[in-house]
Structures are given as C-alpha cells and as structure tokens.
Design a protein around this nucleic acid. Structure first.
Lengths: 306, 306
DNA sequence: GGCATCCCTTTATGGGGTAAAGTATTAAGG
DNA sequence: CCTTAATACTTTACCCCATAAAGGGATGCC
C-alpha cells in the first residue's frame, strides 16, 4: 500500500526519461552482457502494478517477474522511486496522439478526456502516484501538449489557458479515481457495486439513525436524486454530452480497446451501477466545464473587438 | 512514503466515526484504568502526520508521542488503516460550518472552496489519503452538506447537482495538491519555488534541447504566458473572481487563521511564486466552473417556464 | 593466460505492521 | 486480606520491505 511523493534523484529520472529512444545495447568491453534492460524492467514493473496495484509493487516482485532477484534491478535503476518515475511516464506512452484540428474544441476535449480517463482505468495505480512531481517525462508532456493544442482553438490567452489545463487534468483524474475505487471495492468484496453501495448505505443508516436530520441537504440530494432517476427525465445540465463525443458508452469503449500491451481491464458484461454514475459525472462535469470555457471565450472575443 | 487505499475494517471505522461524541470513560470492573483514549491517539497521529507527513506516520511514532510503545495503540485501534480513517475525518472537524443563505451561491462556493483549500494546506497529508474511501465520517459529510446547501440556491435538479458536487471537490483537491507539492519541493530542497522551477526548467532544456520543436503547443504556452504576465494585462477568464469572494489574498488569509489546534502552517512573509500561480489557478478555474454552473442554471429555468 | 570489468547473487541492516506471550495493575468477591 | 479475573501495556518475535556491502562468475581485451 505504498505511494510516493516523487522523491528520489530527479536528475537521473529526467535524464532517463528523455534519453533518446532505443539507446542500443552498445555495450563493449569486458564483463557479461546485460540480460535485462531498463525498458524491460519498467515494463515488468508496470505489469506488476497493473495486476497487484502499488501495494503489490516491490523490488522483489519485479525482479521475480524477470527471473532475477530484487538486487539485480539496482544495476539498472538507482532505487524504487526512480523506477516509479519511469513507470508513470512509460505507461502514458500508450495514450494516442492525433488530436488534429477540425473537430472543434468541445469535441476535442471530450475525446481527450475520454482517452485519459480510460487510460487511468487501465492503470489505476497511476492515480495513486502523486501528480505534478518534479520529474516530468515526454509522454506526460504529450498529454498536456495534446490538450493545449485543442484549447488553442478557443483563442483564449495563454495565462487563462494554462489554468484551464490544470482544471481539466484534475477533473479527469479525480473522476477516474472515483470509478477506480468503486471497482476496487467491488472486486475486493466480491459483490457488485450496487450491492456494495446499498449494503454500505444500509449500514450507515443503522449506525446513524438520525442521518437525515443531521444532514438534511445530503438527505435531500439522495432522495431527490433517486426520485429524478425514477422519473427518467433528463435533467438540465445534461446538454452537450453527445455533442462532446461522450455518448453512453464512449468512455467504456475506449477503456475496452486498450492500445497498450496489458491484458485489458477485465470488463464484464454488466455495466456496474457506480461506474455508470461516475461516467455520468464526467459527462456532466465536462459539460459544465465546457460551458464555462465557452463563456470565457465569448468574453475574450467581445473584449478583443468591442 | 505510505498512503492507503482505505482498506481495513470499514465496519469498525464507521462505528467509531459515528459514535456519540465524548462517550465517557465509563470503565467499570477490574483492570487498570486506560491512560490513553481513542481521541488522544487520533489527535497524536494527526500531529505526527502534520509534522512528518504520511511517510513519518508509523505506529511506533504515534506511540512514542504518547509515551507508549506501538503495541499499546492496538488496545484502542485494530490497525493502522482504521487509525487513518479516523485521522482523516477527525482533521476535517476543524472546517467551519455556517454557510447560511444570503450571500448568493457564487460567493458561497468561493468561500467554501477557499476554506477547504486552506484546510488541505494545513494538513497536506490528507491529500495523499485516497478520497471516496469506504468509510465516510461525519465531518467529511459536513463538507458535502455545506456545499449542497449552497448549491441548492441554484435550483438545479438533484442529479446534476450531485455531479457538480463531485466536480468541485475534485477541483479543490487537485489544486491544493499542486500547491502542497510546490511547498514540499521548496522546503525539501531549501530553495524558493521560483529558483527551484527555473533550475528545473533549465535542466529540462539542457536534457531536451529540442523541447520547443517537439512540444510546440507547450512551448507556446510557456512563452506566451510569460509575455502576458510581463504585460500585466488581465486576460479574460479572470472575471468573477472578486465577485466570488476570492481576492488576491482570500485563500491565504483563511490558511493563516486556522481554527484547529495545530501550529498553523508556517506561512512566511514572501508569497511564493508557484503558490501564487496555483491560487490564481483556483480562482480562474472556479470562475470557469461557476460560469458553467450558471449556464446550466439558466438552461434549467428556461426549460421550466418557456 | 592474466585480468579488469561488470552482471547478478548472497548476506546483512534497519525499519515497518502486527501476532503472541508476558507483566503489571486494578476491582470485585470471599 | 487474599484470591481471581479482567484489562492496559510491554516484550519478543515474525515476516516483509528497501537497499548497502561483499562475493561469485562470466566476459572481452591485453
């Protein structure tokens, strides 16, 4: 159950992250040929983290997966923290590029958010790695590059744009975290999310019988929300979802068609309740954000030529 | 460097989190009187985490602070995970309530966000505790309750509102995380953020000489951003900041006037560069979010009576 | 062949969470 | 007052972790 703050030796991490690709096995001179490689180690570590989470990520586990001892890794990596830096950026390599202009920034952001969200769900451990660490790699930078490319269409000034970039990244990360933890709870306890949440809800009302009195707003939110869902009437604030390229199964499809070498993310046929809810949250939230960005854009152009 | 996924025994955590306050020392019967208490342990653990971060939080450390061994704690707490559940909610106890109506929802959300952000900065370790864990306590619930109370003024339907709640919480958390890590890097290396970032930037351009060619959008963002800041012209997208109650020093003031028993958060006189930047991000981001919420509200009322 | 070089293993150290067993302290019952 | 049983806390021990230090064995150059 370990997570890191991104310490270690940033200089080493930076150098390795940005080293020219496939710096060949140009090893000459005495001594045995290296059987491992930095890339192989990083790949193995990502696989371990995908399977067992960051809690299961130990130098022993990674070494074992490569048929070596834990100490063998230290020939290639100074320590675990630096390895995590490389894992984090390396995983991002599977994110697609090609957010060319022509689809409009609203749709572009929708696609970008769906891709990134699906990536987080394919590698939930990335959500536990603290963001905005010192060591920034090329693939993480690529995510930002893509988003900035899309957002430039809005014509917003750079200062505002940079901040919006932060907002969007935090938003997708946070939402993906909610989904990931729901999945984790579901698989850990062996019940479906729906059962799990209703059980927890029942327990809450048993432990706190006066919940509705102490938290009237939250109680209203829960009850009214259920009522609305029962009525199946589309509330407002839901607009712009299809427009943004995020249909009912947009995120889901992207999650299933992973580009990376991983085994996929054990999608089962039934769409879990909470996951649907969280996906709806990403859609609504994104719609809100997009409307806000649009408002800023309008204000900017109005100011430019009054 | 430990963080948790929120495992442990949720039933125990829930029971303790919601137990009636100050369940007295009604111990009768044989055996020595307990010298510790659950509250004292949680308080001590929070102090340790405030000082040394989650990395420095060990059962041994908490026990030592109370003049006991690590094992002594196990009389009161089943394990470290459960203790963390209690710490997390316990820290939230210092958040204020009283977001009465009358100031308007925009200003209300601004105040709510500033209070929550300042709280995160006073207890940065809370940002490493993964959110939306199984065990939800009364004080975390209070944060949601406050926000829902404010948002009900918008008249938005519950479904949309619940999702906006998630967006706002993720947003404040993410932003606070950025600030917190900037602080951490600054104190860890002993240099100011500004020096630290320029050093890192120089290193990046040394390691990656062709950065600007490979990441033209990001390069543009950086250069244009600097140019705009040099011009000191308020870009658009900045509107609504004062209106939302978030002045230049709004967050800062709140951070300094902590309500909890902690020592404050060693604010020094010079406002660090990156922190200013991050605060600006919270302001801009919030403005975008508020505009988006407003758009949803308008749409809702338009739909209600056409 | 000698030998320096380098990959990898073995062994060891210190720290973590916590199980198990031991010790001391108390109140109740005789 | 003495026994008994319950309880708070300590001691010890175990296993897992990251990693320092030292050793072993393969390899290519002289």
């Amino acid at each position: 159950m370990g997570v890191f703050a991104g310490q270690g030796d940033p200089a080493w991490s930076m150098a390795m992250l940005w080293r020219p690709p496939s710096t060949g096995p140009a090893r000459t001179g005495p001594g045995p040929k290296p059987a491992l490689s930095l890339d192989a180690i990083v790949r193995a570590a990502i696989e371990v983290a995908d399977r067992d989470g960051l809690a299961g990520l130990s130098m022993r586990a990674v070494g074992e997966r490569l048929g070596r001892t834990a100490m063998a890794l230290y020939t290639y990596v100074p320590g675990k923290e630096e390895l995590l830096d490389l894992m984090y950026d390396g995983a991002h390599a599977e994110l697609p590029g090609g957010y060319g202009p022509g689809e409009g920034w609203r749709a572009g952001i929708g696609r970008w958010a769906a891709d990134l969200g699906a990536f987080y769900l394919r590698h939930p451990w990335t959500l536990q790695v603290s963001h905005s660490r010192p060591a920034l790699g090329p693939h993480e930078q690529g995510v930002v590059e893509n988003l900035v490319g899309i957002l430039r269409e809005t014509g917003l000034p750079a200062t505002a744009l940079r901040r919006i970039v932060g907002v969007l990244i935090h938003f997708v990360r946070g939402t993906a975290q909610t989904i990931a933890e729901a999945r984790l709870a579901a698989t850990a306890t062996g019940v479906s999310d729906e059962e799990w949440w209703s059980a927890r809800s029942a327990q809450l009302h048993q432990v706190v019988p006066d919940f509705n009195a102490r938290f009237p707003m939250s109680a209203w939110l829960g009850e009214e929300g259920l009522r609305e869902e029962g009525l199946r009437e589309d509330g407002p604030g839901e607009k712009g979802l299809r427009e943004s390229g995020l249909g009912e199964d947009g995120l889901r499809e992207r999650a299933a068609s992973g580009t990376g070498p991983d085994e996929g993310c054990d999608e089962d046929a039934s769409v879990p309740y909470l996951e649907r809810e969280a996906r709806a949250m990403i859609e609504t939230g994104l719609a809100v954000l997009l409307d806000g960005i649009e408002a800023a854009t309008l204000r900017a152009s109005r100011r430019a030529r009054p």
